[in-house]
Amino acid sequence: MKLVNILAGSPQLPDLPIDFTNDVNWIGVDRGSLTLLEHGIIPTLAVGDFDSMSEDELRRVKNRVGKIIQVDPVKDDTDTELALSQAFEKYHANFVNLYGISGGRLDHFLSNFLMVLKPRFNQYAQKIKMIDQQNIIRFFKPGHHQIQAVAGYKYLSFITLGAVQELTLPDEKYRLQDQIDPYPTAYVSNEFVQPTANFSFTSGTVAVIYSRDLKKEQ
């Protein structure tokens, strides 16, 4: 499986990977490129308008990264969308892990979360995972799916994105049977009761969110 990791521009600690690994291809988005370099990783590609960097910081990126796509700040696609397009179309990723998607800003988070509904990306929905230090988000197309519990993530939520037909949760802690939602609906704080859980639906897109409460510092 060809995995591509994308680090978007958020420098916030909760948005960053818990462990940076150098054994996969990384794409740095805007300031995410600089963050990767600071963690000892030279991204395969840096992409964005780089308007969040100083001239000196951008020079550092250009001196270290072999391939850079710099675009005009006035554009139709977000920097993250450009990176995701490159991951699938240029690097032929079988799976993409996307980090740094919010930086604490809800508009950035929603832009990244909802881009999976765009037709050009929706075809790849099940190959995209969004990760921060408190959440793992996956996306699913219609059908029957089985997912596995992840150690440390207690909660399991199902978010219907648009009209979803016949959502069935047969073996989670809180069950649903053939639920029809004509509008987006969040079924939150469910839980695994076994190492795996099954669910199914017949139309639309569903986001599945693994989440956990961060320990409070004493």
Rank of each mutant, 00 (worst) to 15 (best):
T168W: 03
W26H: 11
P43G: 11
D79V: 09
E38M: 04
Y210G: 00
I159L: 15
Q123M: 13
P170R: 09
K154W: 02
R212N: 06
Y187C: 05
N63L: 13
V29W: 01
H145A: 12
Y153C: 05
L214E: 12
N5H: 07
D77R: 12
V71Q: 11
I128H: 01
Q165K: 15
L176Y: 02
P170S: 09
P142G: 13
R138L: 07
D171W: 01
G32F: 00
A197M: 14
E172H: 03
Q146T: 15
G28R: 07
D23K: 05
G9L: 11
I136E: 15
V96G: 10
S10P: 07
P43T: 13
I101M: 13
Q86L: 12
P142Q: 12
S85H: 04
I209Y: 03
Q133V: 00
P17Q: 07
Y99G: 08
F109R: 09
Q165S: 15
Y174P: 02
S102R: 05
G32K: 05
I101F: 06
Y210W: 12
L176I: 04
P43L: 11
F113I: 08
H108I: 08
K141C: 06
E81H: 04
L16A: 01
L82C: 11
F88D: 02
G9S: 13
L3C: 02
R105C: 03
I131H: 04
S10K: 08
V61I: 14
I41W: 08
F121L: 15
S33Y: 10
R60M: 03
L161V: 02
I147A: 04
L58M: 07
